[in-house]
Amino acid sequence: MNVPDNLLYTKTHEWIRREGENIRIGITDHAQAELTDVVFVELPKVGTQVEAQAPTAVVESVKAASDIYAPVKGTVVEANDALTNNPALINSDPFGQGWIFALKIDNADDLKNLQTAQAYKDQIG
């Protein structure tokens, strides 16, 4: 399973890429493999303020709907509209074109609570 070293991770299988003031968020390769067949993504509205661990997007497979959580407190600055027509990008390119939303973070210190690639690898075994 692909777990890029340059990203941070949550216990709930989101990945986080630091981009200056902002972070970009998606779900991991492991998560997409578990879900399989993503058929719908509900994106957050740009400008929405979210708390850490707030359900912010929804990824639906054939079988079930799964909440995607904001890893830290912040404001939604981008949502990946490409997923509206092609939700399967989450399956084919989870760390790239399958990103879900981007947040402007309130406090960069909050990122310290997230786990490293190694810790996430240990988590998923």
Binding site: V39, F40, E42, V58, E60, V62, A65
Partner: peptide, 8 residues
Amino acid sequence: NGKGPPPR
């Protein structure tokens, strides 16, 4: 009627 979240 159109694309959207699947009914459950």
